[in-house]
Amino acid sequence: MTPHHTAIDIEELRATIAETLELDPEEVTDDARFVEDLGADSLLALEMQVVLEEDYGVHLTEDDLRRTTTLRAAHALLVARTTQGGTVS
């Protein structure tokens, strides 16, 4: 996966998150909540942060992490960060 996106492909993101959480992509619906619906614990949430930072070349804060509760939220956050010219690794 290339870190130089400007447009974030939500299907690619779905696949990445599914792989991180060891789920099938269909299970990661746009609004399924990672913790409550998909069974992620705090370490898996941190894992997702590390994966997204590496794949999308952004820096995510703890606040970002708290707000990133669903695929839709994660996508919106990454779009905002990458179009703001967030750091590219």
Binding site: L43, L44, L46, E47, Q49, V50, E54
Partner: peptide, 10 residues
């Protein structure tokens, strides 16, 4: 350390 896998860390 920031690049360690959190889920493997334990």
């Amino acid at each position: 350390a920031d690049r360690l896998s959190p889920a493997t860390a334990p």
